[in-house]
C-alpha cells in the first residue's frame, strides 16, 4: 500500500482510539491486516431509532490512493435501511462516492454512517423495497428495522409476532434469513411471503 495511505490510517487509528465516541462506545475500529489496508468498524445504533441498542459491523477497505479516494465501506451486519442494501450491505452515501473529501477521516465516515442511520434518505435509495416501505408504511418499516436489529445486531427489542411468522416458514424448510427477507418485503403478510418463496 502506498506509504501515505498507511501513514494516514495509522494516525487516524490513533485519532479514533482517543476519540470520545470510543469512550462512549459509539464507534469502534479494529485492524484486520498488518498493512493497514483493511479494517473492521463498529457503530452503535443511534438512540431514538429502530437501530438503538444494536451493534453494526462494517468492512472498511482502504484503497492505495487513500485519502484522495474514499475508503470502500459496507455493512457486514444485516440491516433494514433504505440506503443500505439488505442483501449485500452496500451503502449509498454521497461522501463515500463523489462527495468524498481528503480531509475526511475514518472517524468522520463512521459518524456520518451513524447519522445516516438516524436520518435515512428514501429519495436516494440503495434498497428500493426498503425505501418503498419506509415511505408508504413507516410504522411497518420501524418495527421491521427493529426486528432486524434484534436478530442481527443484538438489539434488545424482540417481536414475538414476527418470530412466530418466521417460525412458520422455517418449519416448511425455509432458511430463517430467507423467510425474514420475504416477510419483511411483504409487510409481514404470511400468505404473500409464502407465495413469493414457493413460486
Amino acid at each position: 500500500m502506498a506509504n501515505i495511505a498507511a501513514q494516514r490510517i495509522k494516525r487516524e487509528f490513533k485519532e479514533v482510539i482517543k476519540s470520545e465516541e470510543v469512550a462512549k462506545c459509539a464507534i469502534k475500529l479494529e485492524l484486520i491486516d498488518d498493512n493497514y489496508s483493511e479494517l473492521k468498524g463498529e457503530i452503535a445504533g443511534p438512540p431514538d431509532t429502530p437501530y438503538e441498542g444494536g451493534n453494526f459491523v462494517l468492512e472498511i477497505k482502504v484503497p492505495e490512493t487513500y485519502p484522495f479516494n474514499p475508503p470502500k465501506v459496507k455493512f457486514l451486519t444485516k440491516i433494514w435501511h433504505p440506503n443500505i442494501s439488505s442483501v449485500t450491505g452496500a451503502i449509498c452515501l454521497d461522501i463515500l462516492k463523489d462527495q468524498w473529501a481528503a480531509a475526511m477521516t475514518l472517524r468522520t465516515v463512521l459518524l456520518s454512517l451513524q447519522a445516516l442511520m438516524a436520518a435515512a434518505e428514501p429519495d436516494d435509495p440503495q434498497d428500493a423495497v426498503v425505501a418503498k416501505q419506509y415511505k408508504e408504511n413507516p410504522e411497518m418499516f420501524n418495527s421491521t428495522a427493529r426486528h432486524w436489529t434484534n436478530v442481527y445486531a443484538g438489539g434488545p427489542n424482540k417481536n414475538p409476532d414476527f418470530d412466530q411468522k418466521i417460525q412458520r416458514l422455517t418449519d416448511m424448510g425455509v432458511m430463517s434469513h430467507d423467510a425474514r427477507v420475504a416477510l419483511s418485503t411483504y409487510n409481514w403478510e404470511l400468505e404473500r411471503a409464502t407465495e413469493a418463496i414457493f413460486t
Binding site: 501515505i4 501513514q7 494516514r8 495509522k10 494516525r11 487516524e12 490513533k14 485519532e15 485519502p67 484522495f68 481528503a102 480531509a103 477521516t105
Partner: peptide, 17 residues
C-alpha cells in the same frame, strides 16, 4: 506509533502529518 501529537495548526488535514 512514534508519531508525535502535533499542534493542529501544523497538521495537514490530508496526510495528517
Amino acid at each position: 506509533s512514534n508519531k508525535l501529537d502535533l499542534d493542529p495548526r501544523f497538521e495537514c488535514s490530508i496526510c495528517l502529518e
